[in-house]
Simulated scan of single mutants.
Amino acid sequence: MKGIELCKRFHFEFVEPLLSNHFPDLRYSSSLIGPGSEVLGYDTEMSTDHDWGPRVVLFLQANDMYLVNSISQVLQTNRPREFYGYTVDLNQTIMTTLAQFLESKLATDFEKGPELLDWLTFPSQVLAEIVGGEVFRDDAGHLAAIRKQLHYYPHDIWLYIMASVWNRIGQEEHLVLRAGYVGDELGSSIIGSRIVKDIMDLCFLMERQYAPYPKWFGTAFKKLDCANELLPLLSNVQSALTWRERGTALCKAYESIARMHNRLGISEVMPEQASPFYNRPYKVIQGGAFANAIAAQITDPLIRRLSQKRLIGGIDQISDNTDFKFINLWHAVEHSGERNTVRALYNKILE
Rank of each mutant, 00 (worst) to 15 (best):
V135W: 00
F10Q: 04
N292V: 10
T121D: 10
G85A: 03
V88I: 04
E111Y: 03
R259K: 09
I4W: 03
K112M: 02
D51L: 14
F290W: 06
L106A: 07
F23H: 06
E351I: 09
E82C: 02
Y28I: 08
S104H: 09
F324R: 11
R147T: 05
K283M: 11
Q209D: 09
A249M: 06
K325V: 07
M1I: 08
S70L: 14
Y213N: 12
T48C: 08
R310Q: 15
Q317A: 15
L241R: 11
D316Y: 09
I199F: 07
R263K: 06
C251Y: 01
D184E: 15
Q238A: 07
R79F: 03
I195F: 00
L150Q: 01
V56F: 03
K223G: 12
R246C: 05
E207H: 06
L106T: 03
G53S: 01
W166T: 12
H11M: 04
L350A: 06
N69T: 12
Y346K: 08
R27W: 06
Y278L: 14
P214F: 10
M260D: 07
A220V: 09
N347L: 12
D49I: 10
G313S: 05
N63H: 15
A144N: 08
F59Y: 14
L234G: 11
L90I: 02
C203Y: 10
D49L: 06
D49C: 05
L116S: 00
L264V: 04
R339K: 14
T77Y: 04
T44H: 04
A253N: 11
Y84I: 12
G183E: 10
I157C: 05
